[in-house]
Design a protein around this nucleic acid. Structure first.
Length: 236
DNA sequence: AATGAGGACAACCGCCATTCG
DNA sequence: ACGAATGGCGGTTGTCCTCAT
């Protein structure tokens, strides 16, 4: 196990363990948190008899030891949700993880980087996914409007770089950008239950590389429960 | 069988926001 | 009001494992 010195309380140099946790450390941490709760991570290691920094303990607890954590086997539904939430929220892993019970931000982030981030998610992929969901209803009568599920950043990237190369495509990007029917999407979302002004206003934000949608939780909830409505909207 | 490449994932780091004295 | 302590987050790195050569 790797050791490292760091400044502890009052500048005292202490030796802390680094690297992979061993079963004994996990046991100590679980036992301590079970009795005393998961507060004051700074002093917890010393009290629990762990040669770890507080941050390390906190991370270990939150990501692996706390009850209710699901490990591995990301289901197709979860993956689908991750993709759509990422389209909405970007790399805000803690927010995304908050929508996936039992999953941690670290796991979502790792999964994205390992499986999804590298894979260019095309509109065709999204259409195929939705058609699969709509099996038995005849599938989509017309292509899914890209503006509903993909951020303009992704669209612009696709438009400017259709073959994976770089540069160019400004006109196409501009066209796609103009096709991003933000107002339409927002009005669909806010009118879902007929209450467009609930105090949880939907906002938008430009980040320079294309707009990213920002939703208050209630609106996001609506959107995530909106899949069937998107389907019926497209089929009608 | 040895080894190098690439993937997967656990853990660390640095920064920022919030809380507290 | 201010600074220190603490918590939380996203990005990055390190390590282990698998597989191809």
């Amino acid at each position: 196990m790797v050791k490292k010195t760091q400044r502890g309380n009052k500048g005292v140099v202490v030796v802390v363990n680094r690297g992979a946790w061993i079963a004994e450390e996990d046991q100590k941490l679980v036992e301590y948190v079970r009795i005393h709760g998961d507060t004051n991570w700074r002093t917890l290691p010393a009290k629990a008899g762990l040669n770890r920094c507080g941050k390390s303990c906190r991370l270990r607890w939150l990501n692996y030891l706390r009850p209710g954590i699901k490990r591995g086997n990301i289901s197709e539904e979860e993956e689908d949700l991750i993709i759509r939430l990422h389209n909405l929220l970007g790399n805000r892993w803690s927010l995304i993880a908050g929508r996936l019970p039992g999953r941690t931000d670290n796991e979502i982030k790792n999964y994205w980087n390992a499986h999804l981030g590298k894979r260019p998610l095309t509109i065709k992929d999204l259409n195929l996914k939705l058609n699969k969901r709509l099996e038995g209803t005849g599938g989509l009568k017309r292509p899914l409007p890209t503006r509903l599920l993909a951020s303009t950043r992704d669209l612009v990237a696709t438009a400017t770089d259709p073959a994976g190369g770089g540069g160019g495509g400004g006109a196409a990007a501009e066209q796609l950008h103009s096709e991003f029917d933000l107002d339409r999407l927002l009005s669909l979302i806010t009118n879902l239950d007929g209450s467009s002004s609930t105090g949880n206003d939907v906002g938008t934000e430009a980040d320079g590389s294309g707009s990213t949608l920002e939703f208050e939780f209630d609106d996001l909830d609506k959107f995530m429960n909106y899949e069937d409505d998107i389907g019926s909207y497209l089929l009608n």
